[in-house]
Amino acid sequence: MEKAIHGKNVKLMFRLLKERGQKKAGLLALEMSHIYNRETNVETQATKDGSVATGGSIEANVEMEFLKTNTDVFNMLEYAYENGEEIEIWRIFFDNPVAGEKRKYKAQYGTGILSNFPDAAEAESNASVSTVMKLNGLLVNGEASVDAENDELAKAFFFDTVADAKPEEPKSIYTPQVKA
């Protein structure tokens, strides 16, 4: 019997396109939801026999909502919006690992630009952002490798039963690490 894909296990990762060769992608923390939209501009032309539909090109975007944090990924997204930078996006299906591969999952990949970045701070809730990323074409299906740090973050509420299996504290990719 087929298993449903749980929305909480489909998570977003991002990276500035210009940093592809220098930095790894990072997981978006405290994501509440995202929607991958694909839409065709369909026009109709009236004829004596009825309307005829004609299709146009497909436009795609990702609508996302997440809590405001002081993480590298949040700061990078805000920077990308303010500077019109192109970013890479991955939709990682963490409940669909690739057979025989460690930390590799079915995923979708694309690039695009954030069209807005509203930063809401209401009295009775956490500060949040609800934004839209306009994509360059459609997301491409494939497989994505996830490093150990982001794999642990994606599964943040799961811990092994062995005491010494506690994951290391995540290290920031945007701040220099102090060597002891």
Rank of each mutant, 00 (worst) to 15 (best):
E2C: 03
K3S: 11
H6T: 05
K8R: 13
V10M: 14
K11E: 03
K11M: 13
L12I: 09
L12N: 11
F14G: 11
G21C: 02
G21S: 12
Q22R: 09
G26P: 02
G26F: 05
L28K: 08
A29K: 12
E31Y: 02
M32D: 11
M32F: 06
S33W: 02
H34Y: 05
H34I: 04
H34K: 03
R38E: 15
R38F: 00
T40Q: 12
N41F: 07
E43A: 12
E43F: 08
T44L: 06
T47S: 10
D49G: 10
G50D: 00
S51Q: 11
A53I: 06
G55E: 06
G56P: 08
G56F: 12
S57G: 15
S57K: 12
I58S: 09
E59R: 10
A60Q: 09
V62D: 00
V62S: 01
E63I: 03
L67W: 00
K68C: 11
D72Q: 02
N75M: 08
M76R: 05
A80Y: 01
A80T: 06
A80K: 09
E82T: 13
N83Y: 14
E85A: 09
E85Q: 14
E86L: 09
I89W: 05
R91M: 13
I92L: 06
F94E: 01
F94M: 05
N96C: 10
V98F: 08
E101C: 09
K102T: 11
K104Y: 04
K104G: 01
Y105W: 06
Y109N: 04
Y109I: 03
G110N: 03
G110F: 03
S115A: 14
N116K: 05
N116M: 05
A120R: 08
A121L: 11
A123M: 14
A123H: 10
E124A: 13
S125P: 01
N126I: 01
N126P: 00
N126A: 13
N126S: 11
A127D: 07
A127R: 07
A127H: 03
S128M: 12
S128G: 03
V129P: 02
V129W: 05
S130I: 03
T131Q: 05
V132K: 15
M133Y: 00
K134G: 04
K134A: 15
L135Y: 07
E143K: 02
V146P: 08
A148Q: 12
N150Y: 04
N150V: 02
N150T: 04
D151Q: 07
D151M: 04
E152F: 12
L153F: 03
L153R: 07
A154R: 05
A156R: 06
F158N: 10
D160F: 10
T161C: 10
A163W: 07
A163T: 14
A163I: 13
D164L: 09
K166M: 08
P167M: 11
E168R: 04
P170Y: 01
I173S: 12
Y174G: 03
T175C: 00
V178Q: 13
V178T: 10
V178D: 05
